[in-house]
Simulated scan of single mutants.
Amino acid sequence: MIKSMTGYGRGDRVAQGYRVLAEIKAVNHRFGEVVVRMPREYMLFEDVIKKTVLESVSRGRVDVFVTVEKTEQAARTVTLDEELAAQLKSAADSLASRLGLTDTIPLADLLRQPGVVTVSETADDPEELESLFLGAVREAVQSLLTMRFYEGERLAKDLTLRLSKLGELCAVLAARSPIVVEEYKERLESRMREALEGRAFVEEARLLTEVAVFADRASIAEELVRLQSHLEQFSSILLAEEPIGRKLDFLVQEMNREVNTIGSKANDLKIAQHVVEAKSVLEQIREQVQNVE
């Protein structure tokens, strides 16, 4: 089953006092590229997020947007530096005594002094946070894949129809090719008779030689055989499970090469018209293949 390179996915996880939302948008790209955007303090998870995405996505540009929201107040720890407080109190009392003051430093003012009281939040467990982030990302990736498979089904149907049309054109070209040689023979014989002023005798050997040379030069049999082979390979590859975009892109180039050669070799208006139509169908196929992973 083929997959499209475009799609969107979303994943949401809530745990450890956090809500992590992961959104993924994928577009066409020749290679696999993952760009992660999230708050700077969580960038330590960037590499593992990229690796997780690339386990399921082999081709296309994937933008991952991660937003983090705290759902609970983190646990806090209060630390009192009693030794520092005692030193500050002693220094204040000593100064008041020397100055002949009776004031003493209030406890509230003492606690406000730098370093006396330290309030810190309990550090988060990196492994638990990583698990939370990856859970949201994996859910988003799965959602993305669902959309890509759905789009892939539509692409496969469209490509199959266009391949069928191209196959019909190949059959028309194959049927027309011998007729072109026969018509050339008739035209050549007519011209030779005119050159001989209507005399019935025509040099058969010379006629056959000229026709043979033309038939060899204008023959498109080999190109049609290769083109038909490419069509069969294309249809077979559409059923593959692995990423097939690059293979299909290569086959389209080869088919286009054969069609161009047919157009240049076949000295016939009807074949030229069919070649133009075939090239149009191939261009439509090429555009669709650009969307295949």
Rank of each mutant, 00 (worst) to 15 (best):
M5H: 03
G11C: 02
G11R: 00
V14Q: 14
Y18M: 07
R30M: 05
R30Y: 06
R40I: 03
E41Q: 12
F45E: 00
V48M: 07
V48Y: 04
V48I: 11
V48C: 11
I49W: 00
T52V: 05
V53Y: 02
E55V: 01
R59K: 03
V62T: 02
V64Q: 02
V66R: 02
V68I: 12
V68W: 04
E69H: 06
E69N: 07
T71G: 09
A74L: 07
A74M: 09
R76K: 12
R76C: 05
T77Y: 08
E82G: 14
Q87I: 11
L88V: 09
S90H: 09
A91N: 13
A91E: 09
A96G: 05
G100A: 08
L101Q: 10
L101D: 10
L101E: 14
L101F: 10
T102D: 14
A108I: 04
A108G: 07
D109L: 14
D109A: 12
L110H: 00
R112K: 13
P114S: 13
V116H: 03
V116K: 04
V117E: 09
V119F: 06
S120E: 15
A123E: 09
P126M: 08
E127R: 07
E127V: 11
E128W: 07
S131T: 03
L132M: 08
F133V: 02
F133L: 01
L134P: 01
A136L: 02
E139Y: 06
A140C: 05
L144K: 00
L145M: 06
T146K: 15
T146I: 12
M147H: 05
R148H: 01
R148N: 03
R148S: 01
Y150R: 15
G152I: 06
E153H: 07
E153Q: 13
L155S: 00
L155F: 00
A156N: 13
L161D: 14
R162I: 00
K165A: 14
L166E: 03
E168A: 14
L169E: 07
A175D: 15
R176M: 03
I179A: 14
V181Y: 13
R187V: 01
L188T: 05
L188Y: 04
E189M: 10
M192K: 11
E194M: 09
E197W: 12
V202Y: 12
E204R: 14
R206P: 11
L207Y: 06
L208P: 06
T209K: 04
A215N: 08
R217S: 10
A218R: 12
L224E: 02
L224H: 01
V225C: 15
R226N: 05
H230Q: 11
H230S: 10
L231A: 12
E232L: 13
Q233Y: 13
L239M: 15
K247Q: 15
D249T: 10
D249Y: 07
L251G: 14
L251M: 10
E254L: 05
M255Y: 04
M255C: 10
N256E: 06
N256I: 03
N256S: 12
R257V: 11
E258K: 05
V259A: 12
N260F: 03
T261H: 11
K265I: 03
K265C: 05
Q273W: 12
H274K: 13
V276S: 08
V276K: 03
V276F: 02
A278H: 01
V281H: 09
V281L: 09
L282K: 01
E287P: 03
Q288C: 00
Q290G: 08
E293L: 02
